[in-house]
Nucleic acid binder design. Structure first.
Length: 395
DNA sequence: CAATCGTGGGC
DNA sequence: TGCCCAAGATT
């Protein structure tokens, strides 16, 4: 049974521990709600050390809600490049526009209003309300669920959405009067530095005296969390098309669709090999043969109307997302003579009677410099860096 | 509820 | 290496 004594002890000792000393993080410089908001979005599923340089750059580029609201979307994505979960960036900007239109550019000191912003869920709403406005709202993230599961010996699966609801009520009941911001941050700070997922450091823990998991010797088996499914493999063919004439020194890239995986990011053209599921060997075709390369150049011809001619294998690269594992085989290619006379894609495509008005991807020729302007997923940054590193040595 | 949505670091 | 993990939201 959870005693009031154990709860009061926990709240007071944890708050005192935090106030005795905590990390000097850039978003703790002041309580500007915009800074708190941006930091909380960046910190979703992302480590503090990773976020810090992104946060500094982002705040330098978009210092205010208005600056963010008025920025070109692609610039915001570029600033987010490499941080992952890119819908966070697009939702954050959508939220900034809401604040401009609905609240005159001022982030409201109101839980329902904040929770109504794009990209702001239960955790982030609680974090903003407590840290920026010191309102007594719980902010339950993975740290908090782990810390409280151990301290109170809770055996609910923290991977289940329902579990968070229960822990929110508990967390709310622990908030000391007038200290919501510091207390919520203390909970997360403890989870990040002391009550860590693997081998928690119980001896320096400020609340270990009444930690039920520790007292039962069960701190390493809590919290209970079901494993995520492993990412499914996808074998893909990609191609670096080398331009000629006015596009000499450039390669062909395209922009991804507005929704879904890596939405609106730029990438090398590629296609899924639907019948390969157990490795490249299963395809039964060596990478040096032209057969695989031709299937991706044919796809590209259909999409662009260009005549694309494979020239060789470039590299194999793989990339793991949360739910998909991409195995990418990358070829090089150049342009045949027939269609290069056309000035634009639609004219070229129309000439082949393949023009469709609906959903044609946007293609563009870019050089090394343009890569620094457009947002690319990590995988293609790696491939293109390698490509241009080699290309610069040739000339 | 379960799936979708990135990336880098630690062991 | 392979696996787990990290200040979650959306559908």
């Amino acid at each position: 049974m959870t005693t009031q004594i154990a709860k009061t002890y926990f709240s007071e000792e944890l708050l005192a521990w935090y106030r005795r000393g905590n990390r000097d993080l850039p978003w703790r410089k002041n309580r500007d709600p915009y800074r708190i908001w941006v930091s909380e979005i960046m910190l979703q599923q992302t480590r503090v050390d990773t976020v810090i340089p992104y946060f500094e750059r982002f705040m330098a580029s978009f210092p205010t809600v208005q600056a963010l609201a008025e920025a070109p979307e692609e610039e915001v994505l570029k600033c987010w490049e490499g941080l992952g979960y890119y819908s966070r960036a697009r939702n954050l900007q959508a939220g900034a526009k809401m604040v401009m239109e609905l609240y005159n550019g001022i982030i409201p000191d109101n839980k329902d209003a904040v929770a109504g912003l794009k990209g702001v869920g239960p955790y982030t709403a609680g974090a903003i309300m407590s840290i920026a406005f010191n309102r007594p709202e719980p902010a339950v993230d993975g740290n908090v669920m782990r810390v409280l599961s151990r301290y109170f010996c809770l055996e609910d699966d923290i991977a289940k959405p329902k579990t968070r609801i229960g822990i929110e009520k508990l967390a709310a009941s622990l908030i000391p009067e007038g200290a919501a911001g510091d207390f919520n941050q203390a909970l997360m700070e403890l989870g990040a530095l002391v009550c860590t997922p693997k081998s928690p450091s119980c001896l320096p823990c400020p609340v270990m005296e009444h930690c039920e998991a520790r007292l039962a010797g069960r701190e390493s088996e809590l919290p209970i969390k079901t494993k995520a499914k492993p990412p499914r493999p996808e074998y893909r063919l990609s191609v670096i098309v080398e331009g000629s004439g006015e596009h000499a020194g450039k390669v062909l890239v395209r922009r991804r669709p507005d929704t879904g995986l890596l939405a609106q990011m730029w990438e090398l053209p590629h296609m899924l090999l639907e019948d390969v599921k157990d490795g490249w060997e299963q395809a039964g075709i060596p990478k040096e043969s032209g057969a695989l390369a031709e299937s991706v150049t044919r796809m590209l011809e259909g999409e662009t109307g260009l005549l694309v001619r494979p020239t060789g294998w470039f590299t194999d690269a793989d990339h793991v997302f949360s739910h998909i594992h991409w195995y990418m085989r990358v070829y090089t290619a150049d342009l045949g003579e027939v269609y290069t006379a056309f000035q634009d894609w639609s004219a070229a495509a129309e000439s082949r009677e393949q023009y469709e008005t609906a959903e044609r991807a946007e293609y563009r020729w870019i050089g090394r410099e343009e890569m620094d302007k457009l947002p690319f997923p990590n995988l293609f940054i790696r491939i293109l860096r390698e490509y241009w590193r080699g290309a610069s040595h040739d000339e």
